[in-house]
Design a binder for these strands. Structure first.
Lengths: 196, 196, 196, 196
DNA sequence: CATGAATGAGCATTCATTCAT
DNA sequence: TATGAATGAATGCTCATTCAT
């Protein structure tokens, strides 16, 4: 039985979503491949027609998350650096809120890198950090961003603190800081209180 | 077979060290209890005479790490706040360098909290964060620490960024930033460049 | 790998038979699940596709035995009570002979009830005892069965002595009393010598 | 340190009692040797100074039970056969009540014979059955006991039904039939209602 | 003798993966 | 392409037994 390309991608997408839920809930090791496939509405074996192994499935989730997140972190190019950074972080946080399953997998993986997966995660994470880095570099030139630390380090710190805040948010039963406050908090911490 | 109390504690310590190595290397789930026990120089079953389950063993490693780390993060009480913070972080980082196995387990756990273990890890982590917090509060009063963010949030951010830097250091094949530079970098990022 | 319903039931039946052999040979505790699965011609794991746990497997064996035994203990409804009882016991004993593995598990379990399994075994055993009880009650009314002891107690005694005789038969290397003689012996003991 | 013969036998007796409790409670396989030794008030290893293995310990319990039970089943030698039998069974049942732990192990073992232990259990059981057999043989000669079944078979049936009644009594949460009623019930079932 | 640390065989159970249908 | 039965490696944990002290 042939399946149209769209139908196949639909299937793949449902499998990815189910996988994100499971990985986000219990982590890579405890995740159950059979459960994922069945949670997506298929039988146990189906998932192997789309992803050759558990690890590949996991990486696919991380990459899909990174891709989606990247789209949401675009920022207006003509504003103040801090405004642009805030917009970018806000985009990221709201994506994380809307796609918690994917976000939890992605954020956790960014923070602590499963040993064998590290290079691939770095690669998936790169565009996001690069975007921050670009804004920062431009801001340094303009003079509205501190220049005592390299843009790269600053970008990593911003991204890292944001991830940590998200993890705390989820772990604390979604208490404080709220999603809305995270970008402001992180930027205040790293770029100073001056942005109104 | 009678065994002196010291001998028992020696055995326990060897098991803990082996456990830290294994957990640090492959994480909780992939760690093999039998392998840990044998790596410590005993047979498979011995470890169960000291730790009732894999989870208890893991928590014991985290707690031992927290305890040791806490000792190393004590700071001179009569200096400038930033000096004291730097000393404290330096103590932590040098402990992490000397006891990499324990440190990796501890740091990773602080960053991302295994779901069921979270409360116990929080508890183990608390003294370290509290120490930073105290110094910060005092510094705020003295006026040599920023006061636009609460000491608690600042302490968590300092601790978090330090952990992230350590993870990056280990993941990058021990490249940059080096252990020596981490405290300075973190404090510069969060407390500003002014401290000479 | 699709498999017809019949093929699955065939697999299940082979697993149950192997389980009965193993449980009958060494009892519940010493029985080895892996060995059962492989003895049935499958690999270790297969049995877990059919029975969720060792205990469930054991209960399934007992219930299958009870079901089969119940079928074989039906008796002609229009004869003398003792004739009917003899026919019923004979049916049970010949089933026990033909399905020794199942019978050994069942009989042993009826005699001494593994603590946690007792209620389920009682339930499986009930139809057999009830059948005897009905015949006895009818016989009491007709007057061809003693009435100084309740039918229920009498039924339990008949069933119990039959089981004991079977156990002795198996334990004695299949010596005396033979299968053929057991019903007569038990009925003589409990209902008197008069039935020719 | 030397220990007097009495002290040693006291230790042995305490170990045996603890073993009976454990075996009676959970059966041979699930019984825990360490727990037995500690329940007796010693440390784990002590029990191996008295019994070379778990199986030996179990057999020792069965044999001790048989010995004690045998003492309690002696009957007046000058009375009516049924009176003597009743006295004998009564002695057995009251022993079972007073030493439930030992009795449960013994009775269960008599009923269903752990495969490898059977010969030794038979041997321990023999004196009890023989006593009944002797009374029955004498009664047959005197004419106050049925003679349509051999004394040996009758003795086994009496002993077996008594054991079954005890098992039911224990399993039913000590309901009916009560200990007092068991001898009468068994004798009525097997020797007829005439004995007042 | 008593102790209790060490031992290591043994086992139920899980689950990613394969593949015939 | 979807299915789901079969596979078998892997592993946490138990516990009878040994033996040095």
């Amino acid at each position: 039985m042939r399946k149209s390309v769209e139908a196949k991608q639909e299937t793949r997408a449902r499998l990815l979503e189910a996988a994100a839920r499971e990985f986000g809930r219990v982590g890579f090791e405890r995740a159950n491949i059979d459960a994922i496939s069945m949670d997506a509405g298929f039988s146990k074996g189906t998932i192997y027609n789309y992803f050759p192994s558990k690890e590949d499935l996991f990486v696919a989730v991380v990459e899909a998350a990174a891709e989606e997140a990247a789209v949401r972190t675009s920022a207006p190019s003509d504003a103040d650096s801090k405004v642009r950074l805030r917009a970018s972080l806000h985009g990221f946080c709201s994506w994380a809120q809307e796609h918690q399953a994917f976000a939890q997998v992605f954020v956790r993986e960014c923070l602590m890198g499963t040993p064998g997966l590290y290079p691939r995660v770095i690669q998936a994470e790169a565009p996001l950090v690069s975007r921050l880095e670009e804004i920062l570099e431009e801001g340094t030139l303009r003079g509205d961003v501190r220049d005592d630390v390299s843009a790269q380090v600053l970008a990593l710190a911003i991204f890292g603190l944001t991830d940590l805040a998200l993890v705390q948010y989820w772990a604390s039963g979604e208490g404080r800081p709220s999603f809305e406050e995270i970008p402001e908090l992180v930027l205040t911490l790293l770029l100073g209180p001056s942005h109104q």
